[in-house]
Write a protein that binds this DNA or RNA. Structure first.
Lengths: 112, 112
DNA sequence: TTCAAATATTAGCATATATGAATATTCCTG
DNA sequence: CAGGAATATTCATATATGCTAATATTTGAA
């Protein structure tokens, strides 16, 4: 079915979000464009590795670039990325809250 | 920073969506619970492989199970999953439309 | 045209992931 | 409690991914 192709493409796109480093980059680019150099200062990993991740984000069409001299600025192609990011993080935080609650309950039971 | 831990967990959660098969399963479970057997009929891959993917979804806390006799029913833990799914697919479809448009434009230029 | 700054790419290795085949577990029924 | 149906797990292997280190490319300016 055609549907299978969509699942395939969909999963390809989601691969972009499976790296903490790429998530950090995307979060930094959320509302402004940044040059590679600016990103490099904000982030804890090496320039080459940063470039590799930016390259992946480019290939997948998640970010776009603008050149000014030797400086290259990166920005998001689609602000929906931010929404997707937020929904995931909400789910994550809810889950963490649950886990917290769970471990509090367990402590309560143990004391009883 | 604490933030790094969140990116790590966030990326872990996103890994769940990097398999077309898991996306298909999640889409089937979107609004109803289904047993493994029912899923097996709706899907084109083997039972063992289906179980493997369900196991991954369970581990990550994306789906929950209910047992009735030997039958096990699966359902989504959080309906936000559906929203996340939709946002991704919207982005995907927009991109495909763009690409379509692009290739139409190219054909137009070639004809001119 | 040469140099340095900014960014990108490649190669090699280590780790993670997906799959099929085989096997195990759980639970109901007779 | 033996057998069968439903589901899960394990193992081996193939493929993909991420990282570092080294190197390349592009561009502006002297």
């Amino acid at each position: 079915m055609m549907e299978q192709k969509l699942y395939e493409l969909h999963s390809q796109m989601c691969r972009v979000f499976t790296s903490p480093k790429r998530l950090e980059i995307l979060n930094l680019l959320r509302d402004k464009e940044l040059s590679v150099g600016e990103l490099e200062k904000l982030v804890k990993f090496r320039q080459a590795n940063l470039s590799q991740h930016l390259s992946i984000l480019r290939e997948k069409g998640i970010v776009k670039t603008r050149r000014d001299g030797t400086t290259i600025y990166y920005s998001l192609v689609d602000t929906k990325i931010g929404k997707a990011f937020d929904i995931m993080r909400e789910m994550l935080l809810e889950r963490l809250a649950q886990t917290e609650k769970l471990s509090r309950d367990i402590r309560k039971i143990k004391r009883a």
